[in-house]
Structure formats: structure tokens, C-alpha cells
Design a binder for these strands. Structure first.
Length: 484
RNA sequence: GCCCCCAUCGUCUAGAGGCCUAGGACACAUCCCUUUCACGGAUGCGACGCGGGUUCGAAUCCCGCUGGGGGUACCA
């Protein structure tokens, strides 16, 4: 009888939601949903120095934004609460003491300085750096001496020296790690009394009955350590799956230090990326759905996801591909939705000068030509600003040409005949003027466009005219026809 | 240093020994559509890191090399 699948994401609130965390969360989420299991959110906040509540909010918010929801978590509770490690300190310590009483762990009084010296020595001798397990053999006198000195011990877990830990990774396949390479007996509880990550995760994953642990491949060595703890605790370990890391175009791990805000989901939100695009891009970075289907929603992802099809090799974050996804969703999502999302990016403008209908028309016109909503402010400026800037190269050159002035004069004379509510009709009049003057293509369109938009490329001309309306068009053209 | 993981077009990838003269997508180039631009459509460019095996047959399996990445904490 297989038990219900339980997968989780366990971020630590030491920074904004990271791209890699988001993707790992997504894979856990997709997997849990696909298997009709539970997806759990848990906070690994044992790093007291770096943890911050504001990051917790950012992380939960970011995950929701991407379309994920969880069945249990710090915000909604659940059968296995609490879902924050800092609320389980005593529990971890109890488990650690149980291991001590069974002879599987012990107090170690070595100071950080002593350990540093040990590492230094080993390095000089060109040996691999590892704890020498000295704490296993303290005499009563030694312990007494250290206690009198006021040393506060850590708790170390005994790592068997000559064994191979192996598991079948759901993504990577069989992995074997020799215990000699783990680094000696490992700390499981710091002198502060706080459990160390490798210990707390295991206790939590046991407590919460996790069946699958899907996480970044930077945890592969931790997995070996953790399997040892599962064994000591007499519990069968969950299925592990290590997802390849996301690296940059130089193939280095994405890091705050090197990439700044670009490693955070928040950055993409504020730059005007659609959550649908972000989710879709993240999901397909290391996983291809059957049938080479590139575009898919969270729901479709949930239905199609297959852990065994996740790639083993690293994924390179390619902003161009993300842009393509985003441009796709910008064009295909319902206009009202895109408009709602676009308006905050236009908040510097006086939006009340247009009806909602016209605003939607503007978004509809502009969304074809941009990759992100962040770009909409610039490309829509001529719709909102009272006066537009005409760049010198257009003002001094194109708009000074005889043919250009002819076109503009003619358009100006005909303004009263434009069917202002009909974009195609407006365009037809321009075409008519072109025919009359014997001008076409650039000679015809560019002057009009330049006069209205301040540039020679842009959205559909008829629609632009229609949205701007007679008054704005008239004032822009007339201001250019003034003798200079 | 030691340990682990990985290796197909510039990028993401399909490929589970013959279906592969290696397929798709992004990007790029050209063309078409549009009497401008964008969108859209079509075409093109373009890869199995190297060397050994195994096999009738290898991108696919094995070994070595090289390259890349990750890990080696009283961080997570």
C-alpha cells in the first residue's frame, strides 16, 4: 500500500524569493498535484542572524503569485503544525538527546578556534578537511575541565567511518557517497541550542510524513548525512530527487552577489512579467512536457508533470526565452486582465482622460509590440502626455520635407471628415489622402506618425488616430504646421 | 586538495541501441503578409566535447580524458 504523496518546499526566510527556490517549489507543487498528494510549505528559519519576517511575506506572496497554493503551511496551519522550525526548538533537542542516550550522538566541547586550527593543520598537510571525532573519547576529567571553563557544547552525531551511503535518486539515478567523505561526526545542535539544518529537516520530514523530497542538487551531500540520521532514528527515508541548478550564461550558480536583484522573483514582478509566463518558463527550464508542448498553464502543468523526465543537467537562465513567454501571455491573456495589470505601470499619467474602453483599446494596441509591461509606460507616452517630443532628426529632416508638410496640411484640412470612432475608417482617409497626393508607404505614413507619436514606428495608425481623437490630433498637427 | 553531479545547435531541450542524412522552441538571417512599423506566416543558419571499447548497429551502454557545476561550517 503506498501512502499519499506529500511533497514540500522549505525555504529559509533569509532573502527575497529566489528564482531557484521558486522553481524547486514549483516542481514539488506540480508533482504533488499530479500525484493527487499534498503540498506543504514549511519555514526553515533556524538561521537567527539572517532570517527576517519581511522575507517570509515576500516568499509566500511570490509563491502565490506564481499560482501555487499549499495544503499546510505556517499561514494556514495543518495537522503537523508548527510549520516554522523556530517553534520546534525543544522538540529537536529532545530528539537529539534521545540519540545521545542511545550512544548515537554526544556532546562536543571543541571551540570554533580549535576546529579552525585543526582545519588549518589538515590543509597544510594537504589532507581533506574533516572533524577528527575527538569528542567521542573525552575522559571524565576533560569534560569536567571544559564545563568549568564555561564551554557550551554542541551535539554531534556519530558518522560511521567506513560505509557507503547510497540511494536511488528520482532524477539523478543511483548515487553513492562514502561516509569518510562526509567530514567526520556532524553537529546537529549548535551551542546556542538551535538545531542545525541537516538535523531539523530530517526531524521535520519525519514529523510531517513527507514521502518525497525534491530539492536543488546542491543538497546531494546533505542527503547522505541525512540518510544516516534517518537510519539512527529508525525511520525509512523519503524518496529523494535532486533538481539541477539554474546557472547564468557564464554557467555560474545564480547568486545575489553576482546578479543582484535578477535572482529574485520580485524583480520580474516589478519589471512587468506575467505570473503565467514566469511559471511557464520556470517549469519548462529543466522539464519538457510530452509532445513538445511549450505553452502551458499551472493546471496543465499539474496534469502533465513527470519527475522522471526532469533533466539531469543544469539549466541556463535565458531572459530572451522568458521574454518570449511573457510576450505570448501579454498577447493572449484576456484584454481586461492585461489592462488591469498594465494600469499600475501607467500611474504616472493622467488616466482619467480616457474611458476604460479607450484604455483597453490602448493596451490592446500596445501589447503586441512589447515584451514586458514595464515597457508600456514609454511606448504609450504619446497617448497620455499633452505635448509630445519630436526628436531632432525627425523635426529637422522628415517633417521639413515638402511632401511631409503637404500630407500634414491635407490631413489637417480633412480632420472634420474622420470617422473618429472607426479605426479602419480613419486609416482609409489617410490612404485616400495618399492617393490624392500620389504618396504612399513611408512618405505617407511617417509624417503622420511622427506628428502624432514622435517616432516612425508604432501601433496601427488608424487605431492610434481613433484613440487620440480629433482634438489631440488637431493640436499636434497644427503645432507642426506653424511657420518656423 | 578531497567528494559528488553533469555533458545534443549560441540558449532551453526531444532522444530510454536501429524510427536520427538528430526533431521542436527561443535568438539570428531572409522572404511573405501589411501601400509604414509591429504582430503573424514560411524558409534558412545551426549540435551529439575528445579517445577507446561493447554491438551486425551507439547521441543512446561501459571505461578513460577534458570541460563545466556543486559540495566540503556551531549557513540553509
Amino acid at each position: 500500500m503506498t501512502s499519499k504523496v506529500r511533497a514540500r518546499i522549505a525555504p529559509s526566510p533569509t532573502g527575497h524569493l529566489h528564482l531557484g527556490t521558486a522553481r524547486t517549489a514549483l516542481y514539488n507543487f506540480l508533482f504533488a498535484r499530479k500525484e493527487k498528494g499534498d503540498f506543504i510549505l514549511r519555514l526553515e528559519d533556524t538561521d537567527q542572524v539572517r532570517s527576517d519576517e519581511k522575507y517570509t511575506d515576500d516568499i509566500l506572496d511570490g509563491l502565490r503569485w506564481l499560482g501555487m497554493n499549499w495544503d499546510e503551511g505556517p499561514d494556514i496551519g495543518g495537522a503537523y503544525a508548527p510549520y516554522r522550525q523556530t517553534e520546534k526548538t525543544d522538540h529537536y533537542e529532545q530528539v537529539a538527546h534521545k540519540l545521545i542516550s542511545e550512544g548515537k550522538a554526544y556532546f562536543c566541547y571543541a571551540t570554533p578556534e580549535e576546529l579552525e586550527a585543526l582545519r588549518e593543520e589538515q590543509k597544510n598537510r594537504n589532507e581533506s578537511q574533516r572533524y577528527d571525532n575527538r569528542g567521542r573519547h573525552y575522559s571524565a576529567e576533560e569534560v569536567d575541565k571544559y564545563v568549568k571553563e564555561g564551554r557550551i557544547p554542541v551535539i554531534r552525531f556519530k558518522v560511521e567511518d567506513d560505509r557507503i551511503v547510497s540511494w536511488h535518486d528520482a532524477i539523478k539515478g543511483d548515487i553513492q557517497i562514502h561516509t569518510a567523505d562526509i567530514g567526520g561526526d556532524m553537529v546537529i545542535v549548535k551551542s546556542s541550542g538551535i538545531a542545525i539544518y541537516n538535523f531539523a529537516v530530517v526531524v521535520d520530514d519525519i514529523d510531517m510524513k513527507m514521502t518525497h523530497v525534491i530539492r536543488g542538487e546542491d543538497h546531494i551531500h546533505n542527503t547522505a548525512k541525512q540518510i544516516l540520521i534517518y537510519e539512527a532514528l529508525g525511520v525509512q527515508h523519503p524518496i529523494f530527487a535532486h533538481v539541477p541548478l539554474i546557472v547564468d550564461t557564464d554557467r555560474a550558480k545564480l547568486s545575489k552577489r553576482k546578479h543582484g536583484e535578477a535572482v529574485h522573483i520580485l524583480k520580474y514582478r516589478t519589471d512587468g512579467y506575467m505570473p503565467e509566463a514566469m511559471m511557464n518558463y520556470l517549469a519548462q527550464m529543466s522539464w519538457t512536457p510530452p509532445g513538445e508542448k511549450e505553452i502551458f498553464s499551472v493546471e496543465e502543468g499539474c496534469a502533465m508533470f513527470d519527475l522522471s523526465k526532469v533533466s539531469k543537467s543544469h539549466a541556463i537562465f535565458d531572459i530572451k526565452k522568458l521574454n518570449w513567454f511573457n510576450a505570448h501571455y501579454l498577447k493572449s491573456l484576456p484584454l481586461s486582465v492585461v489592462t488591469d495589470r498594465a494600469l499600475p505601470f501607467l500611474s504616472d499619467y493622467n488616466l482619467s482622460q480616457y474611458s476604460r474602453e479607450k484604455l483597453e483599446a490602448i493596451v490592446s494596441l500596445l501589447r503586441d509590440g512589447i515584451d514586458t509591461l514595464g515597457e508600456i509606460k514609454n511606448v504609450s507616452a504619446f497617448f497620455f502626455n499633452e505635448k509630445i517630443e519630436i526628436p531632432d532628426e525627425l523635426g529637422n529632416d522628415l517633417l521639413k520635407k515638402d511632401s511631409s508638410r503637404k500630407v500634414l496640411s491635407k490631413v489637417n484640412e480633412s480632420l472634420s471628415q474622420f470617422p473618429w470612432d472607426d479605426a479602419k475608417g480613419c486609416k482609409a482617409i489617410i490612404d485616400g489622402i495618399g492617393k490624392e497626393l500620389g504618396l504612399k508607404g513611408k512618405d505617407l505614413y511617417w509624417p503622420v506618425r511622427a506628428a502624432l507619436c514622435g517616432c516612425t514606428s508604432g501601433p496601427d495608425l488608424g487605431a492610434t488616430l481613433s484613440i487620440l481623437g480629433e482634438a489631440r490630433v488637431r493640436s499636434r498637427i497644427e503645432s507642426l504646421l506653424q511657420p518656423c
